[in-house]
Amino acid sequence: MRVTRLTWSILLSASALMTPLSAGAVEFTCWSPDGVASANAAADYWTAERIAAAIPDGETIRTLPTDGFSKGREDILPSDAERAPIGDAPYKFGGQLLYTRGGHDYTASAQFVADANIVIGAAHSLWKGDMAASNIRFYQGYSNGGGTLYRMDKAAVLLRWTEVADNNPSLARSQFDYSVMRTTVASAVGKYELGIDGAHVDDNVTITGYPARLDGGEYMYREIARIVVQAGTAYDARPHPMYGGGASGGAWFVTANNVHKAVSVVSSGALDGVYGPSFTQDTADLIAIVKNGCP
């Protein structure tokens, strides 16, 4: 069902209550990740065994533009990414995202951004195939089993994302590929500031995440990439040695005057490049809406 500004609908699934809404210029879909009884849902769903068996989520760019940027990048090695110092800012703002979608358990990456109760990840993690994720937990500071588990009571994606979620990964689709979640307990470690249109062509960004192909996704990694294209509200940055499942939703950030600003998240990637959305005022508005419980 297509939802417009003139039509509000309530969709009920086995895993979540999803309410497409509109607030001013921002159209979005918001739901309770554990259904209508989220406050009473089992807190022990994510056992060590479930976490170990979860599927690293990710999307692969089928063909990168043949513009010369990727020429000679076939020799990129995993050593071009390195383990992030998870106890230091801003890396400690991030962690693994755990969730169930379509009957399968997944892991991806996410982080606290803009508010002590707000976590941002990738939209393709939480909404795909007309299915919303449930059992969402954020394992802040995850490092080979350590970290702090945060629970979510609200999750949202842009309505535009639901319209393109099942398309093949592309730069255009990546514009809408972020999700906003609300934790039931505030961050004890801090947060990224939100960087609206915070990076541009030729800027270097640090990209973080938990790539499954490096140490089985047990540790956060970081890489440096240069933005080579900004098209609409999406970025193409190169290279991307963390390619593969698990790093989806990890922050792209820039630092100035000791202020760490998240400017994007990992949307889809290949060995020599990665796409991500450029955060906009819509992002800030969606954060405020989710913070207030999607009224």
Rank of each mutant, 00 (worst) to 15 (best):
E49Q: 13
N117G: 05
S174I: 00
F176M: 10
T7L: 14
G246M: 07
T280H: 08
V119Q: 00
N167K: 08
A251I: 01
P20V: 06
V290E: 05
V26T: 15
S13F: 10
M152Y: 06
V201T: 07
A116R: 10
T208F: 04
V290M: 02
P241T: 01
G195N: 03
G195V: 01
G190F: 02
H200Q: 13
L271K: 14
K128Q: 07
V185M: 04
A41Y: 05
R151T: 12
F28A: 10
L21A: 13
M131K: 14
V254M: 03
Q230V: 14
G198H: 13
Q96V: 08
D197P: 08
E59T: 14
R222P: 01
P169N: 09
P277W: 00
V228L: 15
E49G: 05
Q140S: 09
Q96N: 07
M242L: 02
V265E: 05
L11M: 10
S179L: 00
A41M: 05
Q230K: 14
P65K: 04
I86C: 02
Y142A: 13
C30R: 07
Y106Q: 02
I10P: 09
S9Y: 07
Q175M: 08
T19P: 10
V290A: 03
G58M: 04
V189D: 13
T107M: 11
A284D: 11
T47N: 05
W252M: 04
G195I: 00
V228F: 11
G293Y: 02
A81L: 00
R137I: 00
V3F: 11
I118W: 04
L64C: 11
L214G: 05
G95K: 10
A186C: 03
